[in-house]
């Protein structure tokens, strides 16, 4: 019972962190049709900045989170302007080549600037320790990650379903040329969603630093995981991504607890099974 409970909490926290990082990837992929392998690199940049602000400057966790999100967006905007613009609408292979190139560059620079060691982000006082639920104590940080995931999901749902920007975004996802013809400034929609996606990646990188430790090869190590989550969920779908993160998070965590010697065998077996049954992902649309 104890094991089941801790697996459930860890799986939920892991799934939520995955969700926060990869939902941005899902939206940009559904919107711009770019296979963006560099998304994990932005999460890593966020983690590094938070670590620098919180540990080396000693400015506290909240400041670290805000700095990470803002600075990562500031770094990402020129990259989008100069590099990503060129690969919209190009064949998938070109996109893979370009985004792997960007990832390599970011890894190399991070390795040079921050060093090859693992970076920690000191938690704020109230997030340390564990909460006693009477029958079982759980780490407050795990709870915090879960709550962050829920807030992000709810916030995105509200923005996309209830605001006029959300209407324009959905229109651009469905048919960018038609949306542009109807007067939606798709360039603007693209830029804002890219910035939000990168900001969420940075946020997820900071919140999930305990589960996905920040080091230079972070971008390469988890790149595949994020891509898998988006594909299993169906690009561009928030409920799909949420379900995919929870299911895959549960499978991965259970596998690690019960059969650690098999590594990620069951995770990828499940991915193959799911894609064979749902070739477009859980919530993928017919295009």
């Amino acid at each position: 019972m104890q094991t089941v409970f801790s697996i459930a909490i860890d799986a939920l926290a892991y799934g939520m962190v995955l969700f926060v990082i990869s939902i941005g990837l899902s939206v940009t992929m559904g919107l711009m049709r770019v296979v963006n392998l560099a998304h994990g690199a932005f999460a890593m940049i966020g983690g590094y900045i938070a670590s620098y602000v919180a540990r080396d400057l000693g400015m506290g966790y909240a400041a670290a989170v805000i700095a990470a999100v803002v600075i990562t967006i500031v770094i990402a905007i020129p990259i989008e302007r100069l590099l990503y613009r060129r690969i919209y609408g190009q064949p998938e292979l070109t996109q893979v080549l370009m985004t792997i190139g960007i990832t390599f560059c970011i890894i190399g620079i991070a390795n040079y600037v921050m060093g090859p060691t693992l970076k920690t982000i000191p938690l704020a006082g109230p997030l340390q320790g564990s909460a006693d639920l009477g029958f079982r104590a759980i780490s407050i940080h795990r709870l915090f990650a879960i709550i962050c995931g829920l807030v992000v999901a709810l916030g995105l749902w509200l923005v996309i379903e209830k605001t006029s920007f959300g209407v324009k975004l959905r229109a651009s996802v469905d048919n960018a040329a038609m949306a542009a013809a109807l007067g939606v400034r798709t360039e603007f929609v693209y830029a804002v969603s890219f910035a939000v996606a990168v900001g969420l990646a940075a946020f997820g990188g900071v919140v999930g630093a305990e589960l996905l430790p920040v080091e230079p090869y972070y971008a390469l190590r988890y790149m595949v995981t994020f891509l898998v989550v988006v594909s299993v969920g169906g690009a561009g779908s928030i409920p799909g991504a949420l379900i995919a993160c929870l299911v895959l998070g549960a499978i991965d965590t259970t596998g690690r607890y019960l059969m650690p010697e098999f590594g990620e065998f069951f995770f990828y077996l499940a991915v193959i099974a799911i894609i064979c049954v749902f070739p477009r992902g859980f919530a993928g649309r017919v295009t």
């Binding site: 992929m29 296979v35 998938e92 893979v96 595949v224 891509l227 898998v228 988006v230 594909s231 299993v232 690009a235 990828y268 077996l269 991915v271 193959i272 894609i275 064979c276 070739p279 477009r280 992902g281 993928g284």
Partner: peptide
């Protein structure tokens, strides 16, 4: 994309 991901999983 799902094909790409299948190849990664394989």
């Amino acid at each position: 994309l799902p094909q790409l991901v299948l190849s990664i999983a394989l």
